[in-house]
Write a protein that binds this DNA or RNA. Structure first.
Lengths: 347, 347
DNA sequence: GACCGTCGTGAAAGCGCTTTCTCGTCCGCT
DNA sequence: AGCGGACGAGAAAGCGCTTTCACGACGGTC
């Protein structure tokens, strides 16, 4: 019985021990050429059923696993995609990553990640380069920053790159949730409660999403000829929302606030609570993202939901297009949805 | 001037266009053999300084990038690690992932991820298999589930595997935060407030971390001969915390609750607020994790902090050990830290 | 002045796989 | 009976790299 993998003529360097079985090993056991095994494994080319059975049995018994490196070497395809992810626990980016990974895996791709702490021209470039070294076939950049767009301007043209949630003015296809429209919906919702105007707690200026949300809010007010209060700016963190809240307390005519994300809205709520301002009785508050916690804030938060799984799926689709040589277009939007909760309850 | 990469004798299949430059291309331009280029690139073996300069210049001009597949094929090392991640936005697992990725990148490894939705015997096995197909050199399983331990029992022995935050009874090294001790600290803190006992909102039974935290809580009470109230169980989500909160409202002697994570504590707070129970005036609440939001809950939450970055770093260290053939030991603990906030303020 | 060791370089082999080409066999057709 | 074609299988080449070995040119030693 030829149970053990044949050691080959030369024993190689001794330590590695019994190496992984190769096509040749399987072929030996099945009594065919390695080519036939290849055909069976890849289901390419015709093989007589009984031969196939024998090969399959040998594959099974040997625990044969195709050598990715060898395959990649000859085909020039690694079967791996790269994702440049923002190192943060921000709900959006993290969820998007999973969405992409899922879609990629279903399509038979592996996913390599490279995280960047603070995106800038260099760091994103470094990340892309690092992924290229891993021979990825395409790259998704989760790049909500404005600077990311600039970084992508220098994106390599010999490998497909797509961006999600940013990358404006970058020469790559971009997919994002319709931040502008989402912000408009939230603002309109607040206005529909009868307020004269809506204040805005914005995100960091260098985030495209923050800009879009701010623009949506501003346009909505201006279109109706309403007063546009000075923007208060945070950094997405609950802490910054809290500080913004303290700054807002006591502002005249503060009746409605639209926060650019849920975490800052949480800080806002906290600051208002401490100051004795009741939500929704005294002030209405809306957020953005619909993080799982939002429904359990005090009070439950009206917010704008983004479907990150869908974003991930479609982003992968975009990349697939590009890899197939397609154009994929420039900018794609996924709609956002308003979720109304107690923080904007009628009073 | 020899500026263009030499096309090679055969034009290959026409469509691929000008392929990536190879060692041979660089060698041609520098007027040396491909071996010399290899030596320069890898800094292996002696090369005369001036030769080296010439080679480097050619590398630069051609934009040469070593072909990972070819290198992996001959060396048998892919330079890639695999991480089996839990697909969730739970703060802990996500943060751990970044910690690992960072440490790995610093050490020159790429990171491939494979997410699993609900860990079970099969899914983790599938994920591991999927990563092996990508020729990873080692695998980290972020496996907080009890079942994960069982899944790992069948872990392949021919590739280094380590687990983080779970994998009890698995034949692999495991690293985790000291959940038991953290839970004890939280419980002791609550008891120090003068309560007769502490209630516990536990996590899902099939999570090892949930078990450890529950055990820490229970032991602390039992050691002091205190009454051990019936455990209420959630699933980590704010929603489940909310429901648990509603169930707890009205329990006789409800003065202190230790929630197994912060998100559930949030739901708890919400339920208490709705029921007119004030925290900390009427009831004390403590959580676990110290998510960034915890400091801005209403009221700010006393909780147990876990240093996930450290966990990631040390987990990678463990894997590195294993890959180098070391033993790495069985179980490693990272201490947890109590963070006191208003939800357990003295009254 | 013949010799050994070092240094810098090149030649050859081969990692495991796919691509392409070739070859023998058997069928159905005229 | 003869022959083209489909079918099943193998032979050979080569992907880009590292490993191993071989080779010439030195410089110092006895």
């Amino acid at each position: 019985m030829v149970d053990r993998a044949k050691p080959g003529e030369q024993t190689r360097t001794s330590p590695p021990g019994p190496r992984q079985p190769s096509l040749a090993d399987v072929a030996g056991m099945a009594g065919v050429s390695h080519m036939t095994v290849s055909r069976v494994v890849n289901e390419s080319g015709p093989v007589r059923p009984e031969t196939r059975e024998r090969v399959l049995a040998a594959v099974q018994k040997l625990g044969y696993r195709p050598n990715t490196a060898a395959r990649a070497l000859v085909t020039g395809r690694s079967g791996t995609l790269g994702v440049v992810a923002l190192e943060s626990n921000l709900y959006g980016p993290a969820s998007t990553l999973y969405g992409i990974e899922n879609a990629a895996r279903e399509a038979g791709y592996g996913v390599a990640i490279c995280s960047v702490t603070r995106p800038g021209r260099t760091s994103i470039g470094d990340a892309v380069e690092s992924l290229r070294r891993q021979a990825v076939e395409g790259i998704v950049v989760i790049a909500p920053h404005v600077t990311a767009g600039r970084a992508l301007a220098a994106a390599p043209s010999d490998i497909p790159v797509v961006a999600v949630g940013g990358g404006e003015s970058a020469p790559v296809p971009v997919l994002s949730v319709d931040q502008y429209d989402g912000a408009r919906r939230a603002t309109e919702h607040l206005l529909a409660r009868g307020h004269r105007t809506v204040w805005h707690l914005a995100g960091p200026e260098d985030w495209l999403e923050a800009r879009d949300r701010e623009r949506g809010w501003r346009d909505t007010l201006e279109e109706r000829g309403l007063r546009v209060p000075a923007v208060v700016r945070g950094d997405w963190s609950p802490r910054s929302g809290y500080e913004a809240g303290r700054a807002l307390v006591g502002k005249r005519g503060l009746k409605a606030v639209f926060s650019a994300n849920d975490q800052m809205a949480l800080g806002l709520l906290r600051a208002f609570t401490e100051a004795g301002i009741r939500v929704p009785e005294d002030v209405h508050v809306a957020g953005f993202d619909d993080v799982p916690e939002a429904a359990y804030f005090t009070p439950p938060l009206t917010t704008v939901r983004q479907d990150f799984i869908e974003v991930g799926r479609r982003t992968f689709g975009l990349l697939e297009d590009r890899m197939a040589g397609g154009d994929a277009g420039a900018r794609h939007l996924v709609p956002a949805e308003l979720v109304v909760r107690e923080s904007t309850a009628l009073r």
